[in-house]
Design a protein around this nucleic acid. Structure first.
Length: 489
RNA sequence: CGGGGCGUAGCGCAGCCCGGUUAGCGCAUCUGCUUUGGGAGCAGAGGGUCGCAGGUUCGAAUCCUGCCGCCCCGACCA
């Protein structure tokens, strides 16, 4: 029995919190909604970052950095964009403190002429900059990304899933044609999908957002949607086709080959530390975190079981040899020879932290030339030979990566239903949450009605959905394809 | 911002209703010995502005007033 982890069936959100805390991923800070990401949690994020960054660069993008503080006036330039973000902006109004009667206070003398907004996203400051960079079609495309923190003053926050300050990357591209900007938007949602599925072992559905769920200022929002173990959907990454909205707002024009002035076409795309939440909820169990091997900071841990210094030394020799052979294959290993904790404690701890493979080496193994190998995802344990164990583990990690994906995929398939009756839908979405494929008449009113009555929203209109003639489950009006409804985080 | 709950040791809590010696318990920490193939045992030790400010009282963690903070549920959202 895991010490102090609430089971999923008992209280899912408590289970989630317990994992985050007990696996040492993050904790709340003194500021509501702002979290401290602890070393182990940050190590996972770094692995995600490294891979995504590589994929961005492989698709021709470069990294840059734009400032944290954005003049308030920039926000008023794109009407939809302001509407979307105005309610959740942190605003800097002063630049100095002083000693007052009741301690340190804001110096009223030091009021800013123009207030500064702490970026909730960077379209405005970036397009203000692009204006200076773009004159001709020869300056295009611009393909930039930045890894930064942003602040959105959310009313209710949850570790990783929704925090007031979060880490993310935001890509911002500028193109000469609509076609190219659209292609970029699609390319990047595919990059996210590939990352989610191949690295996070998390199946996702690619789709476009309905108008009401679209990014503020976008003409089209593509999304990857994943299903969590409680049957709720998590939007895990988005890629936006911004049309010429920001170019118009910031007056960014370029001369095309004929010398005609045209507005620039844009895309933006991002994933955040919310992916950590997705990773946790997609795979973990009542014993703790389950990590796909490709994102595990420690892939193999070796726990010695010994009596006395002499035996530990003998085990250390074997452990070092195994570690060296694994590291030669780029597999991360930790030999935990702490004398302050007993083996059982360590076993539980590494299960909690989701280390994929655990080796235990004791006197029996020294005799037999074996090790005890336990895999985190299935809890299977067996004794394997020390001979060629590096090859064995290399294959095993790959198998686990696949098997974790398969499990999540199977779960999603089991929780995906076609539904045609609205009455049935209302009942099922509560009793048996999951992805519901239903016909919808395409109107915001119907979408709104469903949201009010069931709390379910349209997660996306899947890109690969087959055409299927049908009628809207609410209004009976004609529909050409099914969309995905679910309750969402 | 509306509804509910809670602030007592690093963490989790009891005590408060019904005021009364030195404010307890579990986990964690420290020391020592024994232990080590699934979260060790025993013995001892350290650690508190009882959220803050007033008030009532001979006496306040406990009663009263005000303030602050946090958590949960809703509206908002990656």
């Amino acid at each position: 029995m895991a010490k102090g982890i609430t089971s999923r069936s008992e209280n899912y959100s408590q289970w989630y919190n317990d994992i985050v805390m007990k696996a040492d991923l993050a904790e709340n800070s003194g500021v509501r909604g702002s979290m401290v990401i602890k070393p182990y949690g940050y190590a996972i994020w770094e692995k995600m970052q490294a891979q995504l960054d590589k994929m961005f660069k492989e698709t021709g993008h470069e990294n840059a950095y734009f400032p944290l503080l954005i003049p308030k006036s920039y926000f008023s330039k794109e009407a939809n964009h302001v509407d979307g973000f105005a309610k959740e902006c942190a605003v800097v109004t002063h630049y100095r403190l002083k000693n007052g009667s009741s301690g340190i206070e804001v110096d009223p003398e030091a009021k800013l002429e123009e207030e500064l907004i702490i970026r909730p996203t960077s379209e405005t400051i970036i397009w203000n900059t692009y204006k200076k960079w773009i004159q001709s079609y020869r300056d295009l495309p611009i393909l930039l990304n930045q890894w930064v923190n942003v602040v959105r003053w959310e009313m209710r926050t949850r570790l990783f899933l929704r925090t007031a300050e979060f880490l993310w990357q935001e890509g911002h591209t500028a193109h000469a044609t609509k076609k190219e900007a659209m292609a970029e938007t699609t390319q990047m949602i595919n990059v996210y999908s590939e990352f989610a599925q191949n690295w996070m072992a998390m199946p996702v559905i690619i789709g476009s957002k309905s108008e009401s769920e679209r990014f503020a200022g976008a003409l089209e929002t593509l999304t990857i949607e994943a299903l969590m173990q409680d049957g709720k959907a998590l939007q895990s990454g988005t890629s936006h086709f911004l049309g010429q909205n920001f170019a118009k707002a910031f007056d960014v024009k370029f001369a095309d080959k004929e010398g005609k002035l045209e507005y620039v076409w844009a895309s933006s795309w991002g994933v955040s530390t919310r992916l950590m939440g997705a990773l946790i909820m997609a795979h973990s169990d009542d014993k703790g975190l389950v990590l796909p091997p490709k994102l595990a900071p420690i892939q193999v841990v070796i726990v010695p079981i010994y009596k006395g210094e002499e035996q530990l030394e003998a085990i250390r020799k074997v452990a070092n040899k195994i570690s060296d052979s694994l590291r030669a294959k780029n597999i991360s290993v930790k030999f935990d020879d702490r004398d302050t904790h007993r083996p059982g404690h360590k076993f539980a701890e590494y299960e909690l932290k989701g280390v994929p493979v655990r080796l235990a080496i004791g006197p029996k193994d020294l005799e037999k030339g074996s090790v005890e190998l336990a895999r985190r995802d299935t809890f299977e344990k067996n004794f394997v030979s020390q001979e060629n164990i590096d090859v064995y583990i290399e294959n095993l990690l790959e198998e686990m990566q696949n098997s974790i994906f398969e499990k999540a995929y199977k779960f999603r398939e089991e929780k995906t239903y076609k539904i045609d009756s609205y009455d049935e839908f209302k009942k099922q979405i509560i009793d048996n949450p999951g992805f519901y494929l239903a016909h919808w008449d395409g109107t915001t009113e119907t979408e709104e009605k469903i949201k009010t009555e069931t709390k379910a929203t349209i997660r996306c209109i899947p890109l690969d959905a087959e055409d299927e003639e049908g009628v809207c489950m609410v209004t009976g009006k004609p529909s050409k394809r099914r969309v995905i409804f679910a309750k969402a985080y």
